[in-house]
């Protein structure tokens, strides 16, 4: 943290004090504004002085006017992005079937914790089954995709062969453009294989990914070839070199790929919705949409309870592996 400059200290302190005084004045004045136009002005005044106070506080704490502005902006954006989530949690604690609370009544008087029991043990909507389905499918796809894609990445990074560039190009082009046309044919194929409404339908289409191949190829290319040669002299075969030398050294990239795939598959909606139809085979994401459609807008507290149940594990996992996201998105942009 840099030294407090005298100017920023004064700017921060003055704007903060001014904001407090103004806020108190506006709060006191609010009681006397009977005219709605006055009241509106008064409320805008409160908002403006709160902003000024936030800026003052940020400047004081960070020790610079520029930093003060930055922090104010960042905090406002964070509040704006997090507000719906906070609202979701608060509404999930309102009694079932009550209408959407207005903001002044948003904090529940008595938290209705039984909402969570109601949603988790819904008679015709087995949430725990959805959870296990999602977990099983996601882990299978992550493991399978890491294996299949890292093998291909090894092939592309370490071997000279005819058609290598063309094959790699084919992977990249399919990653970018195949999306819109594949849904109908893949559905019909999966139907022909007799996979509809089975784990196979949920797992196999995701078992390899061009993005993961691309990411891991970059990682393997960064590992010096001398290490391969040394292992070869020790008598290791190609598969052993891949398994014992390259994979351990590419662990950070494997973790990045795993993190991306994990969230991608866990939150996938379209394909699981299309390829399953029995309740037992649904995933959390599809279950949530079914829940929403069957309870409609009529029961926001229970809807939000279900949303919290779906979101909570995702957030926990994300907080543990968020650093891999920064890395992965950067890798994807290197061409």
């Amino acid at each position: 943290m840099r030294q407090h400059s005298a100017v920023s200290w004064w700017v921060g302190a003055l704007s903060f004090t001014l904001a407090i005084v103004l806020l108190l004045l506006f709060l006191a004045g609010g009681a006397y504004s009977i005219n709605p136009d006055d009241l509106r002005l008064n409320l805008m005044g409160r908002l403006a002085s709160s902003l000024l106070g936030l800026f003052g506080l940020c400047t004081l704490v960070s020790g610079g006017i520029k930093q003060g502005f930055s922090y104010t902006g960042m905090i406002l954006l964070a509040l704006f992005l997090l507000a719906p989530f906070v609202w979701m949690v608060l509404v999930s604690l309102h009694p079932s079937k009550t209408p959407i609370p207005t903001l002044d009544l948003i904090i529940p008087k008595e938290p209705a914790w039984d909402n969570y029991g109601k949603v988790l043990f819904m008679p015709n909507l087995p949430v725990s089954r959805f959870f296990l389905n999602t977990l099983f499918v996601t882990l299978s796809v992550v493991l399978g995709q890491l294996f299949v894609s890292s093998l291909a990445a090894y092939g592309f990074a370490r071997f000279q062969f005819k058609g290598r560039e063309a094959a790699f190009g084919l992977f990249l082009v399919s990653m970018m453009f195949a999306g819109p046309v594949t849904q109908i044919p893949v559905y019909l194929m999966v139907q022909k294989f007799g996979w509809l409404d089975t784990y196979a339908a949920l797992i196999f289409p995701g078992i390899s990914s061009a993005f993961t191949i691309f990411l891991l190829r970059q990682a393997f290319l960064a590992i010096p070839k001398e290490l391969d040669e040394a292992a070869k002299i020790d008598g290791a075969g190609y598969f052993r070199i891949y398994w014992r030398v390259l994979l351990p050294l590419a662990k950070p990239s494997l973790a990045t790929a795993a993190a991306f795939t994990f969230f991608g598959v866990w939150t996938d909606f379209f394909w699981p919705m299309l390829s399953t139809n029995s309740t037992e085979m649904r995933t959390l994401e599809v279950g949530l949409s079914i829940f929403k459609n069957s309870y409609g807008a009529a029961n926001w507290p229970l809807q939000m309870t279900a949303a919290v149940i779906v979101m909570a594990p995702l957030l926990v996992v994300f907080l543990f592996c968020q650093r891999y996201f920064v890395k992965g998105v950067m890798m994807g942009s290197i061409k």
Binding site: P84, F85, W87, M88, F263, W266, T267, F269, L284, E285, L288, S289, K292, Q303, M304, A307, V310, M311, L314, L315, F318, F325
Partner: peptide
């Protein structure tokens, strides 16, 4: 990274 369905509801 959030559930697309939950985000849409929010």
């Amino acid at each position: 990274i959030s559930s697309g369905v939950a985000i849409a509801m929010l």
